[in-house]
Amino acid sequence: MSAATTGSIDMSTAILIRVEQSGKGDFKKIQDAIDSVPSNNSELVFIWVKPGTYSREKIVVPADKPFITLSGTQPSDTIITWNDGGNIMESPTLTVLASDFVGRYLTIQNTFGSAGKAVALRVSGDRAAFYGCRILSYQDTLLDDTGSHYYSNCYIEGATDFICGNAASLFERCHLHSISTNNGSITAQHRNLASENTGLVFLGCKITGAGTTFLGRPWGAYSRVLYAFTYMSGVIAPAGWDDWADPSKHSTVFYAEYKCYGPGADRSKRVGWSQSLSNDDAAPLLTKDMIGGSSWLRPAPTSFKRGSTIIKPGSKL
């Protein structure tokens, strides 16, 4: 975020838009609420999605509509769902193309099943953050496509490459759940060049599952993934990492673990081309600085406005 952009945005107050299927809100559909935001928006917009299952629309946040927050109250009762597969760019239930997006307390799912690629959430905008969301599918659940992203306390479920893409992302205190019955993969990070400052860091996370899974496999030759302070259940295959049948990538990938624990964290049978990091090597990767977060992660707004009326905390929304 540039200094000029930061200076023009009041981070404490957001325009409130309510979505409620009963018709008591401003809109019945989430996409209609997003469409109501002006192009090249320069104010925080908080779209409050009331409880319900929103299943009749694919949702896109266009690139020219930054600074939108899409928020439920808790993911168990605010569910955005679709059923499409085949193309990772076209199948997502929710696609975020805009910068400075925030998603909060939502379930985002694709119920296409195990027949092929089916993305629940595609994040292709820069500076996107997700808090307390549930992201569910089978293959390619989260297309963490491009940009700098932050995921906090999210639950992410899938079987095959279910966190994939070429963003620079930090996952903090997230729960990763594999539903693969045999030899799935949690990540397929797509870094293609050594010069790209992209990769996935999982910090203080938890991995559970139903069968066996690898920590990752290289979609790109310079794929980069780190798990740190992460609980690994026995679901993790002893080898830990898969080379996608391409041994040439052994010398170019960066696959590492740091102070992980649990039955799946035993490194005695790990592939030799993965590493256990030293304190010094791990330190720069274990803060929000690796995604530049100190300059763009923002707290939730403290007041809202509808038209010219300011709604203070504690007021009835």
Rank of each mutant, 00 (worst) to 15 (best):
A194N: 12
F304Q: 00
L317Q: 11
I310D: 07
L200I: 00
S180T: 13
G132I: 12
W48A: 12
K305R: 15
D144Q: 10
A129K: 08
G211C: 09
H175A: 05
D145N: 14
S278K: 07
S91D: 04
A98G: 14
C154M: 02
S124M: 10
E57H: 03
H175P: 00
E43W: 09
F202L: 01
G216F: 09
S152N: 14
H149L: 13
D100A: 15
S114E: 11
T78R: 03
V60Y: 11
V123K: 10
A168L: 06
T107N: 14
E43H: 14
M11Y: 15
S152P: 06
S152V: 11
N41H: 15
R217H: 09
Y105A: 15
D77T: 15
S278R: 08
G103L: 13
A128H: 14
R217S: 05
V123S: 14
N87C: 04
I47K: 08
P38M: 05
I179A: 08
V225D: 07
G147D: 01
S114R: 08
L70H: 10
F214E: 00
I310C: 06
K117L: 06
E57N: 06
G293C: 01
L297K: 01
A159D: 00
N110M: 10
D266Y: 13
A256S: 10
Y131L: 07
L97M: 14
V235I: 03
I79A: 04
D32F: 07
E43V: 14
F214D: 01
P299Y: 06
L176N: 00
I163F: 03
L142N: 01
G211E: 09
N166M: 03
L297Q: 03
A118N: 05
Q21P: 06
I80S: 03
G125I: 04
G165W: 08
K288I: 14
K206L: 12
A115H: 15
S303C: 10
I9T: 01
D242M: 08
S294D: 12
W241S: 03
G292C: 03
K269R: 14
I80Q: 03
S178G: 08
Y261E: 05
G86E: 02
S55Y: 06
S248V: 08
T81D: 06
D10S: 04
Y227G: 02
T107E: 14
I186P: 00
M89E: 15
G240S: 04
S36I: 08
S248N: 14
A265Q: 02
L97N: 15
G25W: 07
T198F: 04
L286N: 01
F171P: 01
R127Q: 08
A256Q: 03
P238Y: 02
I68N: 02
L200P: 00
D26A: 04
I163S: 00
K259E: 06
N153Y: 11
D64Q: 07
T208E: 08
P299M: 00
G7Q: 12
A194K: 11
L317T: 13
R104E: 11
T252N: 00
Q139I: 11
G23N: 05
Q275L: 10
Q21I: 09
T93G: 05
I108L: 08
D64L: 03
